[in-house]
């Protein structure tokens, strides 16, 4: 790729992780995240999403890795000062209040005392937890923990935020608020790496996504790009499909149950549709509906996790090792 590292906030190459020689969790992940975008990482359970995030945050040691995070090699500790992280199922010490937790983690990120106190107060208000700020976290619900967790990830005013299932356990109102926070962060130039199962939410906020299946990135790009090949027009007509349509390889015909037929034409441009419509009208066919159709993120996801050879959904989880690669240094 003819780009420099400076364009990418995250630039990962051949990331590999084998857990204690038993589970091959990541098998050569290649991934790039641009500055100032919201990037979504999708994948079935056990695909290696959390492992990948943990490797970037130095929580898990990679078997092999290349690339950079904010322009510095992965694992460079001082860089983490500019990174925020919300792990999946995070747990704050139960003896701390929400405010104390934020200030504690800000101090670990080497934020000075005055700034961390100000940031903690601001963020608790932003995530709607100011009334609970001085209560022990042991009294918080799961949703409240997620809100404070998000605030914790932002307490050091990071340039990059990695969020692992940030809306897990959060009610719809809370999810919307979190979404608004993310959009506002992007507006201010922060890059967000989002790891989530909630495809509809990702679709709403993500600029680009990657789909990880069995430790490999199988798709990566903007949602528009990834769904481009699935874009089509569907024309519903009364009665059986004309013979010429059935003989045209660019048109797929489906017979509907109520005596109607559907002509499916691949493509995103309306121009090529006009001759087909003219011909149908010329034959006095009744056109019931015509609509442009695009794959949803869920369709895209299902396509990615389906084995094209068998049509079966791939088994969840990472596959066992097929033999350790000799390339790269073990870290």
């Amino acid at each position: 790729m003819a780009t420099t590292n400076g364009e990418y906030v995250i630039d990962l190459h051949h990331v590999e992780k084998i857990y204690r020689g038993k589970v091959h969790a990541l098998r050569g992940v290649e991934m790039q995240v641009h500055r100032g975008e919201i990037f979504g990482l999708l994948g079935p359970n056990g695909a290696g999403k959390s492992t990948l995030v943990k490797i970037m945050m130095t929580v898990v040691r990679p078997t092999r890795i290349g690339g950079t995070l904010l322009g510095r090699p992965i694992g460079h500790k001082p860089t983490l000062r500019r990174v925020g992280y919300l792990p999946e199922d995070h747990r704050f010490p139960r003896y701390l209040t929400g405010r104390q937790a934020l200030e504690f983690y800000a101090a670990l990120a080497k934020v000075d005392r005055r700034t961390r106190k100000r940031r903690a107060a601001e963020l608790l208000t932003t995530v709607g937890m100011s009334d609970w700020a001085d209560k022990k976290v042991s009294t918080y619900s799961k949703g409240m923990m997620q809100r404070v967790g998000l605030a914790q990830a932002l307490v050091n005013d990071p340039q990059l935020v990695l969020l692992d299932e940030p809306t897990d356990g959060v009610d719809p109102v809370g999810r919307r608020e979190i979404r608004d926070v993310l959009v506002e962060l992007r507006r201010r130039g922060t890059t967000i790496f989002l790891n989530s199962h909630l495809l509809s939410e990702l679709e709403m906020v993500c600029d680009r996504v990657a789909i990880l299946v069995q430790g490999k990135v199988v798709m990566q790009g903007t949602i528009d790009d990834l769904t481009a090949q699935s874009r089509r027009y569907e024309i519903t007509i009364q009665g059986a499909a004309p013979d010429w349509a059935q003989g045209d390889p660019s048109i797929r015909v489906e017979v509907l149950s109520d005596g109607q037929s559907k002509l499916i034409v691949q493509g995103s441009e309306p121009g090529p549709m006009q001759p087909i419509l003219d011909r149908l009208r010329g034959e006095s066919r009744i056109i019931c509906a015509m609509e442009p159709v695009r794959e949803t993120l869920e369709d895209l996801f299902m396509r990615a996790v389906t084995d094209p050879a068998t049509g079966q959904v791939l088994a969840p989880g990472a596959s066992p090792p097929v033999g350790r690669s000799g390339k790269g240094g073990r870290r």
Binding site: V59, T79, R81, R91, Q152
Partner: peptide, 18 residues
């Protein structure tokens, strides 16, 4: 044991401290 528990240790290890 609490310090190295999953969910707790992640938050700490992700900070710029060796």
């Amino acid at each position: 044991p609490d310090f190295v528990a999953s969910g707790t240790i992640d938050l700490v290890l992700a900070k710029p401290i060796t």
